[in-house]
């Protein structure tokens, strides 16, 4: 289920060094948001804070859940239930088949959910045109691998999709096809998509783009539009 995002006075630090501050930010459920900015500006840090992978201070609420207030294991459980993560370099198990990779969450989810995860993984793979069969993903092209990674993110039917440079490892043609698929699936499923990217083709397809510089949101096309 997609959830609205509400952030206020968010701070992420590494020791005494401030990495990111976000004074106020909100987004409705189902929004497609891009994050851009120069390297080292804090884009990935923001994404990690949104996913609860790093400690943060302030409020960062997904729906009613204030993520920084949760203990690490509760944040992990929240992520497992509500988020699908997509990484720049896919992070697949090359020795496994696309179906096994896409259904990876089924390995640690309760037994009763495994079948549904497997079925959703298969459906997502089919929808994304990933070749069927017993081939391992080690023999796949970059585009095919990223599709498997998207299918993995969708297999748990999360309300939130968080993607870190999803097209950076792909050639233009594969990237465009992937953008089509990713945004199409997010919109069709009513999911919130937050993607860190330098890819203007992707950012153009999103509802709103945040620019982060020196650890601060310096531009928000959503705010300008309002």
């Amino acid at each position: 289920m997609a959830m609205p995002l509400q952030i206020s006075d968010l701070e992420v630090r590494a020791g005494r060094r401030m990495l990111l501050t976000v004074a106020e930010l909100s987004a409705p459920a189902g929004a497609l948001i891009g994050i851009r900015g120069p390297s080292g500006a804090g884009k990935s840090t923001f994404l990690h804070a949104l996913s609860g992978l790093i400690e943060a201070r302030g409020r960062l609420c997904w729906g009613e859940v204030d993520l920084p207030r949760l203990r690490p294991e509760r944040r992990t459980a929240f992520r497992a239930r509500n988020m699908g993560l997509i990484f720049q370099d896919f992070l697949l198990f090359e020795e496994l088949s696309p179906q096994d990779n896409a259904g990876l969450s089924g390995l640690f989810k309760p037994r009763r959910n495994r079948e549904a995860i497997g079925a959703r993984a298969a459906k997502a793979l089919a929808r994304l045109g990933v070749p069927e069969g017993t081939r391992t993903v080690g023999s796949f092209s970059g585009g095919e691998r990223q599709r498997v990674a998207i299918a993995r993110a969708l297999a748990t039917d999360p309300g939130l999709l968080l993607a870190d440079e999803p097209t950076a490892s792909l050639d233009r043609r594969a990237a465009d096809a992937l953008i089509e698929d990713l945004t199409g699936l997010a919109r069709a499923g009513g999911k919130t998509l937050i993607a860190v990217s330098h890819d203007t083709h992707l950012l153009e397809r999103l509802d709103r783009v945040l620019t982060i510089e020196d650890g601060q949101v310096t531009e928000d096309t959503g705010v300008q539009a309002a």
């Binding site: 294991e73 497992a80 993560l85 990876l104 640690f108």
Partner: peptide
């Protein structure tokens, strides 16, 4: 990296 990815996907520590 793969093990960290499992944690990022929400795999419990025990897994």
């Amino acid at each position: 990296r793969q093990l960290a990815m499992l944690r990022a996907l929400g795999a419990p520590r025990r897994f």
